[in-house]
Design a protein around this nucleic acid. Structure first.
Length: 177
DNA sequence: CTGCTTAAACACG
DNA sequence: CGTGTTTAAGCAG
């Protein structure tokens, strides 16, 4: 019946363009999809490790909140100082900025939230449970989520192939390399 | 159109 | 029950 199944989407469904460079097909095998290879210094001598998949997205966004000012930092790994709270720095600043209480939804999207949590992790890998914790620990907004944010988080984890899941049994989420 | 959010169904351990 | 995956639909840019 209807072997002519072109696309489920009516009109123009041009296949999933996917993200602009998100490989994530196989854990191994580098995605050398870039024919130009550009001039990315893969040396990593300086420490700049992040530079892949959503990085562009996160890096840019994070940058906005990492150093709210044009002031540049020399630290290769600026990172915020979460942990402990009091120094939540940017995160709380951005989240609790303005004047509204610390109850508003964070300006970050779930994808970003997850990314930060993992990135902020000690070893760059957290179990999904910890991810919830990180978010919960930083955003009281979720402390009593209406129920659904959890699902949304999981959803993002699965959607984004950048969150490589490692470790069987207890899913430990790690970022793509 | 693209991306984010929510809600929910559904296989799995 | 929690995790993971997948649909689906609505909404903002």
């Amino acid at each position: 019946m209807s072997p002519d199944k072109k696309a489920e989407s009516p009109g123009v469904l041009a296949e999933r363009t996917d993200l602009r460079g998100v490989c994530g097909t196989l854990p191994e095998a580098e995605c050398a999809a870039s024919p130009l290879a550009t001039s990315l210094d893969r040396s990593s001598s300086s420490g700049d490790e992040e530079l892949t998949n959503l990085n562009w997205l996160h890096e840019n966004l994070l940058q906005n909140f990492t150093l709210g000012g044009p002031e540049a930092q020399s630290s290769p790994s600026p990172l915020f100082d979460i942990e402990g709270n009091h120094g939540s720095s940017v995160i709380s600043s951005a989240a609790s900025h303005g004047g509204e209480s610390v109850k508003s939804k964070p300006p970050f999207s779930f994808s970003l939230l997850i990314y930060m949590a993992i990135e902020q992790s000690p070893s760059k890998s957290l179990p999904v449970k910890d991810i919830y914790g990180w978010i919960l620990e930083h955003f009281p907004y979720f402390s009593s989520a209406p129920t659904g944010w959890k699902n949304s988080v999981r959803h993002n984890l699965s959607l984004n192939k950048c969150f490589r899941k490692v470790e069987r049994s207890l899913g430990k989420v790690k970022l793509c390399d």
